[in-house]
């Protein structure tokens, strides 16, 4: 059986799944809108947590948070379930499909056959939509893919029960109740306020303070870690910033697109101006990535080069600090 479902590619999987599921239920909400209302933008540095043998840098909030916040702010209800038993998990999925409900699933990337080998890491917070089943093959709408695809039932079971950090445990989610009309205006204001609060939080691990902390640490890396690991760490920052799903510039361009749309919706010219500023900040993140790539391309250990990218980060941190203060005042 196949449910009529419109697949639309998006930059990021979580926004994309939400946006596609909303469209299916008759509400057209763009990907940047979901991202902005869900307060998806962030910067965070967790040096004590290691992924792929390097610290965690992230440009967005924790997986699942965007959808939760979005749902709460626009007033939709989501039903979520996790499973211990593989058979029950499969039965529940089939049940949804039989009732003509496309559902979202959280999956691990490592065993996704349609991903290129080089991109298959143990990352467990990927999202996709299942919109039908033919014999033992599930019809899959993966928002980062241009077209729809399929997974056999054993392939799907493997990715639904991937292990490690953020293990999905068969996590299945489906929006079940909607308001008559979405109140986007209020939700936008709430979403923006939260992002401003997080980005200027007085904590060293999030927001502009975290960017400054990374800058400070980068200066020490070549001496402290040696060229090899220092290069690997820098590479990790660029990969997290530009990985599939960021829309470029560590989600800064998606956020700029959100501000532009929000400015038109709220008839607030200040937001449109700030959108342009955010685009410029995104460009600066891209310049930082280019400069960093020069270092790890040559496998350089020159302290000068590391200081240069650290300086770039400080400039970005200052820009983002004044940006989010201005954004808070504009609404």
């Amino acid at each position: 059986m196949e449910i009529k479902f419109t697949h639309k590619q998006s930059a990021h999987c979580e926004n994309g799944v939400v946006s596609n599921l909303m469209r299916h239920n008759g509400f057209e909400v763009s990907e940047p809108m979901v991202f902005g209302i869900g307060s998806g933008l962030l910067f965070s540095y967790l040096p004590f947590l290691k992924v792929n043998h390097a610290p965690v840098f992230t440009y967005r909030v924790m997986p699942g948070l965007i959808f939760n916040r979005f749902a709460k702010r626009v007033g939709i209800k989501i039903k979520r379930e996790k499973f211990k038993n593989l058979k029950v998990a499969k039965a529940r999925l089939d049940e949804y499909l039989e009732k003509d409900n496309p559902v979202g699933l959280q999956v691990g990337v490592y065993n996704l056959p349609y991903f290129p080998e080089e991109y298959r890491f143990h990352f467990n917070a990927h999202n996709l939509v299942v919109y039908g089943k033919e014999n033992n093959t599930y019809l899959i709408s993966d928002p980062v893919m241009e077209a729809v695809t399929t997974l056999s039932d054993s392939e799907l079971e493997k990715v639904r029960f991937a292990k490690g950090a953020f293990a999905p445990k068969g996590h299945i989610f489906c929006p079940i109740a909607f308001p008559e009309k979405l109140n986007l205006e209020k939700a936008i204001v709430k979403g923006i306020k939260r992002t401003c609060r997080d980005m200027t939080a007085p904590l060293p691990i999030v927001g502009v303070k975290a960017i400054r902390w990374v800058a400070q640490n980068i200066r020490k890396w070549p001496k402290k870690l040696g060229p090899k690991r220092a290069n690997h760490y820098l590479g990790q920052i660029v990969r997290m910033q530009e990985e599939i799903g960021t829309g470029g510039g560590g989600f800064r361009y998606i956020y700029a697109a959100f501000l532009q749309e929000a400015g038109q919706l709220l008839k607030n010219d200040k937001l449109s101006e700030l959108s342009e500023e955010m685009t410029a900040i995104g460009d600066q993140w891209r310049d930082f990535a280019i400069e960093a790539s020069r270092i790890y391309k040559k496998r350089s250990d020159q302290t000068d080069a590391y200081n240069k990218v650290a300086d770039q980060l400080l400039v970005i941190a200052n820009k983002e600090e004044s940006f989010f203060k201005a954004l808070k005042k504009s609404i």
């Binding site: 792929n52 043998h53 080089e118 991109y119 290069n231 690997h232 820098l234 590479g235 990790q236 660029v238 990969r239 530009e242 990985e243 990535a289 280019i290 960093a292 790539s293 790890y296 391309k297």
Partner: peptide
Amino acid sequence: GWNPKTIALDNAIKE
């Protein structure tokens, strides 16, 4: 694709 990103990924694979 984008070269700065591709190089970072290639290095990670080599590692």
